[in-house]
Design a protein around this nucleic acid. Structure first.
Lengths: 222, 222
DNA sequence: GTCTATATCCGGATAGAC
DNA sequence: GTCTATCCGGATATAGAC
C-alpha cells in the first residue's frame, strides 16, 4: 500500500513526494471502507457513506476504486496480509509453555490493535467466505497443519498433555478473536465502555492461564 | 410462532386447522430469511430471494411482513428466545465438574443444531448490535452475573481453581459458537465437507477436557 | 389469502467540465 | 487529480385483480 522506503523520490519530511497524496487517500478510503463494510455488510455498504467517512467526494472513491468489488477485495487482502504477518510462531525446539503463551499473547494483541480488521474477516467467513476459499484451503491449511505437527511432537515427547492439536489452535483463535469481534457484548457484560490496558492484560492473563493449565503446562509468570 | 397445543380448534392430524397455513408460511419465511440475512446482511438481503428460498411469490412475504425490518426483528427475537431457552444451567449445589461439562455440551449441541441462528446472532453483534442493546445490558447481563456468582462460590469453597468467572463463561461461549459461526473455516482445516456425529462428539470432548482441566477439575467420563 | 403490475426510491457507475 | 450532473439497474413497497 505504501511505496518502497528506498524510493529515490522520497524526501526526509515525506512532503511533496509524488504519489504521496495518492497513498494517503488510498489508506483513508480503505480504513473508511472497512468500517462501513463491518457495519452494513458488502451489499449494504454505500460508496457515498464511505466517501463521507473518508471526508472525500464520492467520485474520488470511484477514481481510486472503479468497482466496489475491487475496494472490498483490496481491504480483505490487506487484512489477510496483516494476519499472516504474525503467523510465524511455534517451533519444535521451543519450550511448549513459553511458545504457547507467546502465541496467545500475540493473537490477543492483534485482536485488540485491529478490531475492525478482525470483524471484517469474521463477517466474510460467517457469510460463507465467498472471497477466501482459496486462502482457507491453501495457505492457511498448510500453516495450521505445520503448527499442529509441532504440538503433536511436543505431545509425543511427553512435554504436554495429549490434546487434539488442531482443536487447540482453533480454540486459541476462537477465544482471542472473540474479544475483538464481540466487543459490543463483552464490554456490556464487563460493565465497561471500552477496553483499557488493564482489561487487555487481564484477558491475556486469563486465557494464558486457562489454556496452558488445560494443556498440563505451568503458565509462565508474566 | 405456533398456536397453543390446547387450541380447541386443533385436530389430531393437524390438518384443516384454521391458521395452520399461516403458521407454516411464517416458519418457512423466517427460516428462509435467516439464511438470506446471514449470506447478504440486512441491507443486502433481497425480499425476492427470500421469497424464492421459501418457494413463495414475493408479494406473499410482504403480506406477512409489510416491512423488511419487521421480518428481521422477528427472526432475531426468535433466536434470542431459543438462546434463552437453554440458559438455565449452573446451580451452587451442583458438582462443578458435572455442571460445567453439562453447560459446555449444551452449548455445543445448540451450536451444531442451529448454526444459522448462531451466525445471525453473531452478525448482529459484530455489526454493532443495533437491535440488541437492551437485551445485552438487560436480561443477558443479569443472567451472566448470576452464573458468575455461582462459579465464584465454587471457587470460594475451594472446589475449583481460581479463574475469572466472567471470562470463563465468555470463553465457553466463544469456543462453542465458533464451531457454528466459522464452520466454513474449521471444516476446511479439518478436511471435512460437513460435521458428522463423530466430529461433534470429538469437539465436545475436546472442549470439556481442555476447559475443565484448565479449571483444575477432573473431566467426567462421558 | 394469492399474485401481477407498477410506483418510487436509492445506489453504483459514467461522462465530462474544471 | 477533483468534482457535478446524470444514467440506469435493482430493490422495497403498494395497488388492486382474482
Amino acid at each position: 500500500m505504501s511505496v518502497s522506503s528506498f524510493d529515490p523520490r522520497a524526501t526526509p519530511t515525506g512532503a511533496y513526494r509524488p504519489g504521496r497524496i495518492r497513498d494517503e487517500n488510498l489508506n483513508t478510503i480503505m480504513s473508511a471502507a472497512a468500517a462501513e463494510f463491518v457495519q452494513h455488510g458488502y451489499r449494504g455498504a454505500s460508496i457515498q457513506r464511505i466517501a463521507d467517512r473518508a471526508g472525500l467526494p464520492k467520485a474520488n472513491v470511484h477514481y481510486y476504486f472503479p468497482r466496489k468489488t475491487h475496494l472490498y477485495q483490496s481491504v480483505l487482502k490487506e487484512i489477510v496480509a496483516l494476519w499472516n504477518s504474525e503467523l510465524d510462531e511455534l517451533q519444535v525446539d521451543d519450550d511448549p509453555a513459553q511458545a504457547l503463551a507467546r502465541f496467545i499473547r500475540s493473537k490477543v494483541r492483534l485482536s485488540f490493535l485491529h478490531p475492525t480488521a478482525s470483524k471484517l474477516f469474521a463477517l466474510e467467513i460467517i457469510s460463507g467466505a465467498p472471497n477466501l476459499q482459496a486462502y482457507l484451503s491453501g495457505e492457511l491449511r498448510e500453516w495450521v497443519a505445520a503448527r499442529a505437527g509441532v504440538v503433536q511432537a511436543w505431545i509425543d515427547a511427553g512435554r504436554m498433555r495429549p490434546v487434539d492439536p488442531l482443536q487447540l489452535i482453533v480454540s486459541i483463535w476462537a477465544t482471542t478473536q472473540h474479544y475483538a469481534d464481540f466487543d459490543e457484548q463483552v464490554l456490556k457484560l464487563m460493565g465497561k465502555r471500552r477496553y483499557d490496558a488493564a482489561a487487555m492484560e487481564q484477558i491475556a492473563d486469563f486465557l494464558t492461564d486457562l489454556i496452558l493449565t488445560g494443556c498440563g503446562l505451568e503458565p509462565p509468570v508474566s
